[in-house]
Design a binder for these strands. Structure first.
Lengths: 240, 240
DNA sequence: ACAAAAGTGTTTGCACTACACCCATGT
DNA sequence: ACATGGGTGTAGTGCAAACACTTTTGT
């Protein structure tokens, strides 16, 4: 990766709010920045000159999760005039020089990062079980955090998460995308739990089931016997 | 205006879908490009290094309409890898050189415009009666066109209008922004006509009135006597 | 038999629709 | 008086929430 405007569009970045669902909670993928104390960031990146915006967002998500075709949607553009993090720049430069691979002049690196960036916010929905976490070049680690227990994020990344969540709540029903957060087959209960995690409120079980079935997009499969002392629930699949 | 990345962010543009309402129709502000046959474009521009995104969108709208504080919302990002118009470039260059004011080297101009641009789509709502149309530097003229009778727009600008309209339809009810298309005081009928123009379908008069009044955001003022042979309608004002 | 959770039916309330009627105004 | 459009009330309809009941499974 050489950060030069012959390869990437300057002053434009993409940050992805990657949502996953596990343990009854809606989670967001967050990276801890290398060599910095208590500094976390959303997975982000830049747009290649030869690349569509959506391709870039896919690539950025893919690099961290291994997921090739997640649901992706652009939810906002973040471009305050002072949208820059000078404190980060020095730390990053040190880090960059330490990387060593495909070396780029420090001056070029600083020239790239010292400018104000406009960032496009995308949110992604992934089946958390399919994810293979992989840290990016500047990341010490990437991890899932419950959306209501995020660590301290740089710049306006917290606002991005808020915006992404607001958009997700608007879209979940209308666009039939809740299934994107689940494995291919799932029980009605787990689907309901996804809704409850996203909207942070309970849903009535019977009405929820009726509403989902009335959508006509669920295919009922075999029952699943968990060995528990109660009726076995049906499995469902999203009928496209 | 000097198009150089010390002044403007390169490869990033903003295009505005400015909606107005008149003569029972929803209209969009469209500019005819100078010295080109049958080529129209949405009012657009670039983002200054020292400027917020929203400021830039406001400026671009202000330059053409004279409206200082329209309702503005970002509805999409357009960034196909081949999002460039080579045919336009030559024409524009000629045009640019003819302008003469604040001369910039032709090479710089071409370097600026020959690259791929990512464009942020904003839509704006204005009271069309308050607008003073003013052509931009590259525009032969700017005019209002009914949203369903647009001239042939460059690149993906038609898709932008479609996206803006879709977003407007989603927002009109939920965000109480229909009033932005009307003068400060208006009759219930004219408000209904705005809705009918936006959604391109009729609304039942009595039910519409009830729905609007039940929102609790309308302040009823005096009646307006038009001199016509029927009951005088009330004027309303948006209660913020 | 019982507990736990799944599945389904029934009623209630609310919002939106359609229909109907009265009112104000100028000719 | 009448035509025209404004304002309001009422009955019907559909959707979603609330309540209630039955079924399946393992201990």
């Amino acid at each position: 990766m050489t950060l030069h405007d012959t390869n990437y569009i300057p002053q434009l970045s993409i940050d992805c709010v990657v949502f996953g669902y596990s343990e009854g909670k809606l989670k967001v993928l967050v990276a801890k920045i290398k060599s910095m104390e208590a500094t976390w960031t959303l997975p982000g990146g830049f747009v290649r000159q030869t690349e569509d915006l959506v391709q870039a967002a896919h690539r950025i998500t893919l690099e961290r999760t291994g997921i090739t075709t997640p649901f992706l949607d652009q939810f906002g553009a973040f471009g305050a005039a002072d949208r820059i993090n000078v404190a980060l720049l020095d730390k990053m430069t040190t880090q960059w020089l330490a990387l060593g691979e495909e070396p780029m002049a420090e001056a070029d690196f600083r020239a790239w990062f010292s400018k104000r960036f406009v960032s496009l916010g995308f949110y992604a929905l992934v089946d958390i079980q399919q994810v293979n976490l992989q840290a990016g070049p500047f990341d010490e680690s990437v991890d899932w955090y419950p959306v209501d227990q995020l660590p301290h994020l740089i710049m306006d990344h917290a606002a991005m998460v808020a915006g992404a969540l607001a958009t997700l709540r608007e879209h979940l029903d209308r666009k039939l995308i809740a299934f994107e957060l689940l494995p291919e087959t799932f029980t009605m209960r787990s689907l309901q739990e996804v809704y409850e995690a996203v909207y942070d409120r309970p849903f009535a079980r019977n009405n929820f089931q009726k509403k989902m079935l009335d959508l006509g997009v669920l295919e009922r499969l075999d029952k699943v016997y968990s060995g528990a002392a109660h009726k076995a629930p049906f499995l469902y699949r999203f009928k496209e």
